[in-house]
Amino acid sequence: MDWHKWQDRYDTADSALARRLVTVQERIRLALEDCPPGPLQVVSLCAGQGRDLLGVLPGHPRAHDVRARLVELDPRNVDVAAEAARSAGLHGIEAMTADAALLDHYAGMVPADVVLICGVFGNIVDRDIERTINACTQLCKAGGRVIWTRNRKAPDRVPLICDWFEERGFEREWVTAPDELQAVGVHRSTARPRSLQRGTRLFTFVGYDKLRSSVPGSDQALT
């Protein structure tokens, strides 16, 4: 899969992915507006070109309060994100070429006010989804929010994802309606964060195409 070229799918007007991006951006906007005054920290796992956060910050009243780390393995996508941040004068944005599955890459930026896990859960197996949600107790500060996505193609894992978050002290703040193929969810932490466990790998990024063909019960035509 060419993940740089894949980003072009967001440009298809009124597609499920384009609608998802708009929804994620709106949830980021609302989350930032609800944060207390002062510096804010954001981390994004498998950030791609950073279209979600970088589509919100220019012109946002909290833009220059935000320090963010966008972790993405494809260096071409990282270059796009870094250039977008520079062009917008967003000097607090760090686009990092690294494996987003390794907790070490979030050191110094967590616990965060906003944790973005978009386009991830549809590309990893269930046990890794649960492991990643468990790690959100390290990544997200008390009162902070995790904004996540997952397609609803069978088997629909959105209810299970919600259960896993809520079992770990997150409150369900908002989830898209069940008839929306590309689900977006927001969970708010109610507990003190745990210490970052360096050296921990959260997931193996399999890719929805390989999951669909090789993992029984994982029909994931979109991310």
Rank of each mutant, 00 (worst) to 15 (best):
I117R: 02
D99I: 09
C136Q: 10
V115W: 03
A142P: 01
H91Y: 11
A100R: 11
L116G: 02
G119C: 06
A142H: 06
E94A: 15
L139E: 08
I129Q: 05
A112V: 04
Q138G: 05
V115I: 03
E130C: 01
C140K: 09
M96V: 15
I93C: 14
Q138N: 03
Q138R: 13
I117C: 12
I129Y: 05
H91T: 14
R131M: 02
T137N: 08
I129L: 06
A142V: 05
I129A: 06
L103A: 06
A98E: 13
V114W: 04
G122Q: 07
N123T: 01
V115M: 04
C140T: 15
I129N: 08
C118W: 04
C118H: 13
T132F: 02
D113M: 11
G144D: 01
A101C: 05
K141D: 00
A100S: 15
A95D: 06
G92S: 01
R131C: 04
T137H: 09
H105A: 11
G144P: 05
F121D: 04
V115S: 03
M96A: 12
A100L: 12
M96T: 06
V115F: 03
R131F: 08
V125I: 14
Q138M: 15
Y106R: 04
L116D: 00
A112M: 03
L103W: 08
A107D: 11
A142M: 09
L116K: 04
I93S: 13
A107I: 03
D104Y: 00
P111R: 14
N134L: 10
D99R: 10
Q138E: 12
I133C: 09
L102V: 13
C140M: 12
N123Q: 14
A142G: 00
V114G: 02
D126S: 10
H91W: 14
N123W: 09
L139T: 07
G122V: 04
I133D: 00
Q138S: 10
T132I: 04
G144H: 07
R127D: 09
A95F: 09
G122Y: 11
T137L: 09
G108A: 07
D126W: 15
A135P: 08
T132D: 02
